[in-house]
């Protein structure tokens, strides 16, 4: 094999170090037997992980985050399925503008969305709770869901649906037996990506959460106490592993979606 040019090679190395070295610090200090985050390391311990078990506020924050993430993922994906299907198959008045509006949160700064939603909710006299966070997360997750599912719906040969109708199946039966199985990998990918986005999201959650913090908000609050830092490192390490696993599953389903749909002769 040809050796890569030195310049390109060193660029790649520097890039990777810059990107991943800070993340590598997480497991290092998560297992370090010292409450001060600094080299040299003092020794190996799992105390920080054990400590996490006893944190009741953490457990509540985790529970809130999971409820929010699962609910937001399911609702966003339902919206995504409906929107993507409509965009791919139907022509209607105001199609482009409405598509633009749905996708807009992808480009708007989250802090703007967060503040704007907060003002509206307060004006409406709605008290902040888990549901307000879910509302905000649906807003930012739906564009991701739509963009994943749009290609799944759009790449599907229209005559496949027609063939199903022609063979005597109803419209609903066609959705159940043909359309949904074909877009299912896309739906799973959408659920996973929306779940991950919601779980990680801080800014909107920070504005819209009431007395019940989400996990990122909890972590942010804990950063004020230096003694808590190693526990946060341990927590961060767990979240990192979880994200990697979810990402791997997401990628698997995204590719399956492409191969399934891509198999039809055009």
């Amino acid at each position: 094999m040809k050796k890569p040019p030195l310049l390109l090679f060193s660029f790649v190395i520097i890039y990777l170090v810059f990107l991943y070295a800070p993340i590598m610090l997480l497991p290092i200090f998560a297992f370090n037997d010292s409450s001060i985050i600094a080299f040299p390391l003092s020794g190996f311990t799992v105390d920080w992980f054990v400590g996490l078990m006893g944190e009741n506020t953490l457990h509540r924050a985790l529970k809130n985050s999971l409820i929010i993430a699962i609910t937001a993922a399911v609702i966003s994906t339902c919206f995504g399925i409906l929107t993507a299907r409509a965009m791919a198959r139907h022509n209607f008045l105001g199609k482009r503008p409405s598509f633009g509006l749905i996708m807009a949160p992808l480009f708007l700064p989250e802090i703007i969305i967060g503040v704007a939603l907060l003002i509206v909710l307060i004006q409406l006299g709605i008290s902040l709770n888990i549901w307000t966070v879910i509302l905000g997360h649906i807003l930012i997750c739906t564009p991701f869901s739509v963009s994943i599912l749009y290609s799944a719906f759009n790449n599907m040969d229209k005559s496949i649906e027609e063939a199903s109708l022609d063979l005597g199946e109803t419209r609903f039966g066609t959705f159940r037996r043909v359309i949904f199985p074909l877009v299912k990998p896309g739906v799973i990918a959408s659920l996973l990506i929306c779940f991950t986005i919601s779980l990680d999201e801080f800014v909107i959650a920070f504005f819209l959460t009431g007395v019940e913090p989400t996990l990122p908000v909890y972590i942010w609050a804990q950063l004020r106490f230096p003694s808590k830092l190693p526990s946060i490192m341990a927590l961060g390490f767990i979240l990192l592993l979880l994200s990697l696993i979810l990402l791997a599953i997401f990628e698997y389903y995204r590719r399956r979606s492409e191969t399934l749909i891509g198999n039809q002769p055009s």
Binding site: L165, D166, G168, E169
Partner: peptide, 29 residues
């Protein structure tokens, strides 16, 4: 509707259901 007519069609693109095998495709109706 198309699903109630005594006609069946062979499509130009064949429109084989990609997630089903040969037997399941033929058995669809």
């Amino acid at each position: 509707d198309a699903n109630k007519r005594p006609t069946n069609m062979v499509f130009q693109s064949y429109a084989i259901f990609p997630h089903l095998n040969v037997g399941e495709n033929v058995a669809y109706g």
